[in-house]
Every structure is written in structure tokens, then in C-alpha cells.
Design a protein around this nucleic acid. Structure first.
Lengths: 196, 196
DNA sequence: TGGTTGACTGAATTGGAATTTTGGTCATTG
DNA sequence: CAATGACCAAAATTCCAATTCAGTCAACCA
């Protein structure tokens, strides 16, 4: 295992467990079995190490989702497949929840801007995916940027905030809810005649 | 004008402008043109004064929305009417945004629990409204509690957070977006055949 | 001698003592 | 006797000393 990879693994572990500000470079070094100075041969700063981790997580998540998609399936089928893969990643994206909590509690600036960047990546990805859906005629014409934003925020609200005051949603309920809300809408199809 | 009403008006004004922790009882008294002690004849504590204001705002908002609803209109028409009334309330519900910002910045506990209560009121109201929509057959069967939660969170995300990184949405775009997302869903109706 | 270390530095953060502000009370007053 | 504002205890804020920690670099090997 390359030294760089050892550092990356140690950093991911530490940041995931303790958040940004509570993990020290000393700690990462010890976890990687090297000294603090050696980290700086591979990464110029703590923020760079952190950014690198987020980048990698995003890439891994995207690759996992993409492996799940089917060329021949329609947009909503694939949305469901992707969502199913994402919720299975609980362990991996617990970091994001941890960091969000840190931002709420301490306002740690690098954690905040890191999360902003993660949000941008995800919204951009969803946006491109929606654009393809529209081009192929599966999705109604809409502003893909806003819709992507709403999809992500709905997901995080349901996964992170809903459980504050309710039983947490099972993965299946979450997927069913998304399908019901966004694919088909709330309108009762047997009353379609009532549309003005 | 009753003394109590004067105090309420002064409190609403102060809390709206400065948030919870930055408004002092002295200040409210001065704004109401009375002395600090006099407030305590009508309200037992600062928190009570604050809670009273939130309560009133909620009631006024609900009444304004309800005045807009039509017995003979279907669920989604009425949702649109209500939403239109709510967005016209910008001035009034700026307090909520102000308080949310205070909670993020300082974590002021009374502001946090006040907002929790406001959220509960609104979700409860939406829930009842959804239940009627389901009973009357306008709305597809669904869990009204989760859906109410998602509707509110989507609204606040679009009104409060979307503008952090984009042009703010016009009232009309917001209403159109809600209609498109939740009433009809994203699925392109001309491809309905593709549903498995 | 190139790669690694860990003592070192200055900037940032923390803890807590001293000081100020403020929610709430109540004897006094007009 | 309704209203006031001086007063009190508690909470918040301000300092400042002590500590922590990101990042550096002279010394140290292998």
C-alpha cells in the first residue's frame, strides 16, 4: 500500500469519526503509522487532505451509482436504482451528516465550504442526469437545476432531519416516497378530469 | 389601543428586527412607551412574550390562507391559492427566516424551540389539509405526515436557501415549480405507457 | 543524500476570572 | 392602586493567560 493511500485511509477514518476540527494532523499521522511532517510531503495542508477525502467519496459514490444504472431502463427506474444504491451507502455518507452536524454546532468554516462543494457536485450530477431524462422524453420539461436542488434537499431532509421527531424511515419507505412524490405526483390519477 | 396590544406590537417589531436574544425587555418597554415592569403585568416572561408573538403570527397566516381557499375548488387549486397567499406574506414571515439565522449563528435555545413549534403547527395544518384531500379523492393515498413535512421543507429550502447561490425565485416560478413537482410529478405524461 | 522525523513557532483556540448586561421583582410613588 | 425604576441574581461578554495545533525545518538516519 502506497504511503499516500495510507494517509488517505487514515484521514478518511479520522475525519469520519471526529469531524474536521477535532481531528489533528498528529492523529492522522499516528493512524497512518508515520510522522506528522511526512503528511506534508503528499498534501500541502489539512484543508487539502480534507478536500481530497471529500473528492474521493464523491467519486466513489458516483461510480457506485453509475454501476447500477441500466441503459435500457427509463429515467425513473434508474432514479430508483441509483437511490437504492445511495441509501445502501449509509456508512460512507455518514461523514456528510457528521460534518453537517459540526457545521451546525461549531460553524467550522472548512467543513462548511467542503459540504457546499459536495452539494454542488451532487446537484450538478443530478442536473445532468435530469437533462438526459428530459432529452429522452422521460421527464417533463423543467428547470433541471432547481429540480436537482429540490431532490437533494428532500433526500437530506428525510434522511437527516425526519428522524429528529419521528421513527426513521426505512430504505424502502424512502424509495417509495420519492417515487410517489416526484415520479407520479400527488394527484389522484382517477380524478385527472378535474385539471383545469 | 389596549396596553397589551401595544406590548405585542412592540415585541413583534423588536423580535422581527433583532431576533430573540438581541432584543431586551427594556427595549420592548421603550418601544411600547411604558416601563419594563408593566410588561410583566401582562406576560410572565420574555419567552412567553415571544411564544405569544409566534402564536399570533401562525394564527394570522392560517386565517389569511384560509380566507383564500374555495369550497368548490379541488385540492391542488387550493394549494396554489394558499401558497400564493403565503408568498405574499414575505414581510410577516421574514421573522422566521431571521430566527432561523439566529439559531444557525448562535444556537439561541428559545428561538430554536419556538421555530420547532412553528414547524409543528404548520406541518399539522398541512397534514389535516392533505387528509381532507385524500378523503375527497383529489390526492393519491399517501402518508400525510411525511408529505406535509416534505412540502414545508421544500418551501423553506426554496425561499431561504436557494438564493444563497442563485437568483432568487420569483413568486410565480415558485408556485409553478410546486405545481409541477408535487401535483403532476416529473414524469412526461406522453410516455405513461413506459410504466412497468 | 533523499526521505523522514519531531522539536519548534506563531497563530488560533480554550478556560475561566472579572466585568457588564439583562430578565425578573417589589418597595415606592403619583 | 397602576405603574415605575432601582435593585438583585444570573446569564452573557470580555479579557487574558495557558494551551493546542497546523505547518516548518534543522537534524538524523538508512
Amino acid at each position: 500500500m502506497e504511503l499516500r493511500e495510507k494517509i488517505e485511509a487514515a484521514a478518511t477514518h479520522a475525519f469520519s469519526e471526529f469531524g474536521y476540527k477535532a481531528t489533528t494532523m498528529e492523529q492522522v499521522a499516528r493512524l497512518a503509522g508515520i510522522s506528522k511532517g511526512a503528511i506534508y510531503i503528499h498534501f500541502p495542508s489539512k484543508e487539502a487532505l480534507f478536500g481530497n477525502m471529500l473528492q474521493q467519496l464523491i467519486v466513489r459514490l458516483r461510480e457506485a451509482v453509475e454501476a447500477e444504472l441500466r441503459e435500457d431502463a427509463d429515467f425513473f427506474d434508474n432514479l430508483e436504482r441509483g437511490l437504492r444504491r445511495v441509501v445502501a451507502f449509509r456508512k460512507e455518507h455518514a461523514v456528510f451528516a457528521k460534518l453537517a452536524q459540526e457545521v451546525r454546532q461549531f460553524g467550522t468554516e472548512p467543513a462548511r465550504s467542503g459540504l457546499r462543494q459536495v452539494e454542488r457536485s451532487i446537484v450538478d450530477y443530478l442536473k445532468g442526469y435530469l437533462e438526459r431524462g428530459i432529452a429522452e422524453g422521460d421527464v417533463r420539461t423543467c428547470d433541471p437545476e432547481v429540480v436537482a436542488f429540490v431532490l437533494l434537499r428532500t433526500y437530506t431532509a428525510l434522511v437527516n432531519d425526519w428522524a429528529d421527531a419521528h421513527e426513521p424511515l426505512s430504505n424502502e419507505s424512502l424509495i417509495a416516497l420519492f417515487h410517489q412524490l416526484f415520479a407520479d405526483g400527488l394527484r389522484n390519477p382517477s380524478k385527472m378530469a378535474k385539471i383545469r
